[in-house]
């Protein structure tokens, strides 16, 4: 059985207790997007500011469990100030880390497709830095949605502003 320490790594608890980039940006000019986890009712609000090709600012609002909140906090720290193209790559890498195991599970209630080709792609966990702490979540399949909620919401926001 996977132990709690696999899930609740110290860095995750740190980001849960002291979330980074907490709050909302004035919208407009920032873009505001909401994400929901239908399983547990968690809600997340991502405010993003894209200037040119760069995600210049990001804030996280809403409420949720330690996994969804820490994942959002870690994400915000990792993407703030980065070129949109790099942000999209990071979203892809992070979701691949989660998807490898997700692919073996029944499809989730929101019908997310899992790209089978991801199975064959080795994930460059080193490129994820601190985010690799969330790797243990895949051992707790029902929590994967918690970890990916903020990332899916950010991706949706980037699509909506037509960035990158």
């Amino acid at each position: 059985m996977a132990g709690l320490e696999d899930l609740y790594r110290e860095i995750i608890l740190d980001h849960y207790r002291s979330p980074r980039n907490r709050g909302e940006l004035p919208s407009p000019p920032a873009h505001r997007v909401e994400g929901f986890n239908p399983l547990c009712g968690d809600e997340i609000v991502v405010s993003l500011q894209v200037e040119g090709d760069v995600l210049t600012d990001i804030k996280i609002g809403g409420s949720g469990c330690s996994i969804s909140q820490s994942s959002a906090s870690l994400m915000s720290a990792a993407v703030k100030g980065k070129p949109v193209e790099e942000v999209r790559e990071l979203i892809g890498t992070f979701k691949a880390m989660m998807s490898i195991h997700e692919a073996t599970l029944p499809r989730d209630s929101d019908g997310d497709e899992v790209d089978p080709s991801l199975d064959a792609t080795p994930v460059d966990v080193d490129a994820l830095g601190e985010l690799a702490a969330l790797q243990g979540v895949v051992k707790f399949p029902v929590r994967i949605k918690c970890a990916t909620l903020s990332w899916n919401t950010l991706a949706q926001g980037l699509d909506e502003v037509g960035a990158g």
């Binding site: 132990g3 709690l4 547990c40 469990c65 330690s66 996994i67 929590r143």
Partner: peptide
């Protein structure tokens, strides 16, 4: 502690409760 996290820790002790809406 969020209900999801409570339920997760309780599971380690064989205690099955529901968390959610």
């Amino acid at each position: 502690i969020h209900p999801h996290d409570l339920s997760q820790v309780l599971d380690q002790y064989g205690v099955c409760i529901r968390a959610g809406h």
